[in-house]
Design a protein around this nucleic acid. Structure first.
Lengths: 351, 351
DNA sequence: TTGTACGCGTTATCAC
DNA sequence: GTGATAACGCGTACAA
């Protein structure tokens, strides 16, 4: 529990010299710097983070603001968190978890006014998110993980849903599929303006419309059971469907299980492509899922890096980073039944 | 940015009165308390957490010390983290993530000496963990999530592996199985003294020996691929096995897929019981896995509660909390083939 | 019941 | 290149 005072006394210099030797905020002669170093080593001195924060008005703490939604943090959110914590540490910052409950506004305000954090990482962003206004007004540096509806002037790192859906559908349509359904997150999440649900839905509809194909979107809770129920209903009402694009890990695995159980073959009868997922999740299924993996670690690193840059020099360019999911081709996508790839639908029976 | 000074001036009292009105550390007349309250509301005053910490020598921060192991935090660790953060928040504390890399000792020491945290939650505890010694010497309050080999004098919350394995095997043996294999985590994790791997292995061996049954333990990396490879090798060398107790989510799902693919029926030919898992993971498989679910949220709450209790009154009793996994009966366990339950093995063919 | 004044361990602004 | 010393915003012993 040695303090700067002790170090200064032992080294025979003033406290300010010790401080400057430590931070390098002003030049110190090599001789005295060495003396200070020796004294610090001898006493096992470590600067007190709190005192430093009070005096410098910088805490080197980043708060991760996450709403405690029904399912907690998702699997990919975990990868995000560890990558973010790691990156923060590398730059000498700490990451504190700031769960917020029902009183989003009040708790966000508390975070801001307590001056505990130099910057904020906003998780689970919705299209119209009340936290954003508060943070702007308070002039607290922040980066969105996700995007609001209008985030032109805001720093964000998000998944490029547009590109992801395009890549997904190019793969599926390229195989010859024409009747494709989207199995998405819950209707509730869509109505709440949850970015991934809304954006993927829109991108899907747009792509299908542009290619003269019909749009079937099925919303489904995040559970294998819901996924099982979903496919039953889906193929009851839309028996012509030959491919499923899914964005819902739990439901996807349930759906695959149910399809197999009901006698359908994958991918011979039905193709399945799971987006915003990961090969690790895909490997849990049999046959192994073709997935497009969410860039959780990249987003974690990007978000923290940009946030710290902004904290340390407010004038940097705005971060608008969109990272697409990467395709990992596995066993659940193939050509549709009774039809060779690239042929037009509704054609006469091939001889 | 209002400070106590501003509040005091506006309320016409001294700063100390504001402070006491806030903390209740000494009685304040109802009249002045009301005046102070009005002033605080008017200014939107929030106490500065850092200044408060420096003066009180308490930060109300808990550090979660986790080694960045190969797989990052596991799925149940995520539930643990959110429950811990939530509980901390309810008690007015914050949870900061403290990932440590290769220099475990150095980074733990840094955490301690920086005085940023009032207490530490030690994650991924190994039987012989160097972090424990450091924390003891520094007299920093800490709670283990897991246990060292000798943790008599330490606070810990851990899974009751002994009871979990007993419950698991009573279920399996009760169904009539006699040839049971354990599919566990990697050999590496065992050799590193990773508690779950070691303790479950020991409990398994002991139970089997006590019941006159042979012990087969197979170590396996945490991936579906490794699980697939494992069952192939396992049933090659031990074709008599009729039940698998597993502790390795990814490998289990891979193993189930591979068993089905190789023509075996579950549970008709092989029973599978996945421990230290969860029904959510179990529901990802087809047929749905019988699981024993890890008490992640309970451990998170218990660990944080006990740690805060210790921080706030150092004299409380030592926490030795062992929580068993709960059995969730589903579709992957049943009686072994060619044999009714509870009959002795090696009997003549039933007519 | 309330006010004064010092201390917490740094950083940063003056001087020299 | 170095040293005093005033903030930083709050807690708390002591005094009234």
């Amino acid at each position: 529990m040695a303090t700067m005072h002790d170090v200064a006394k032992l080294a025979g210099v003033s406290v300010s010299t010790v401080s400057y030797a430590l931070t390098g905020a002003r030049p110190v002669s090599e001789k005295t710097r060495a003396r200070v170093q020796v004294a610090m080593d001898e006493l096992g001195y470590q600067p007190n983070a709190i005192a430093r924060s009070l005096a410098s008005r910088r805490t080197r703490i980043i708060a991760m603001l996450f709403p405690s939604i029904e399912r907690g943090l998702s699997g990919t959110a975990l990868e995000f968190v560890t990558a973010a914590a790691e990156t923060a540490r590398e730059r000498g910052y700490h990451l504190v978890l700031w769960p917020i409950g029902d009183d989003e506004v009040g708790e966000t305000r508390a975070l801001i006014h307590q001056h505990l954090a130099d910057g904020v990482l906003v998780m689970e962003v919705r299209l119209d998110d009340p936290r954003v206004g508060l943070l702007r007004e308070s002039r607290t540096p922040f980066t969105l993980i996700g995007r609001t509806a209008d985030s032109e002037a805001l720093d964000y790192a998000d998944i490029d849903f547009e590109a992801t859906v395009r890549d997904a559908l190019e793969h599926i349509v390229g195989l010859g599929h024409r009747h494709i359904a989207l199995l998405s997150h819950s209707k509730t999440s869509h109505d709440a303006g949850y970015g991934p649900t809304v954006r993927v839905g829109e991108a899907f509809s747009r792509y299908m419309a542009e290619h003269g194909l019909g749009t079937v979107i099925y919303h489904c809770d995040d559970s294998a059971d819901a996924g099982r129920a979903a496919v039953n209903e889906l193929f009851d009402t839309n028996p012509e469907i030959t491919a499923l694009v899914t964005m819902n890990d739990s439901a996807t695995l349930g759906a695959v299980a149910e399809l197999l159980e009901s006698g359908r073959r994958i991918p011979d009868d039905i193709s399945v492509l799971s987006i915003v997922s990961s090969p690790r999740v895909g490997a849990l299924s049999h046959p192994r899922l073709t997935t497009m993996s969410a860039p959780g670690p990249e987003l974690g690193r990007l978000g923290v890096t940009s946030l710290i840059d902004r904290i340390e020099s407010g004038d940097r360019a705005i971060l608008h980073e969109l990272v697409p999911c990467r395709l990992d081709l596995q066993a659940t996508t193939g050509v549709p039944p009774d039809r060779a790839p690239y042929r037009r639908p509704r054609t006469a029976n091939p001889s």
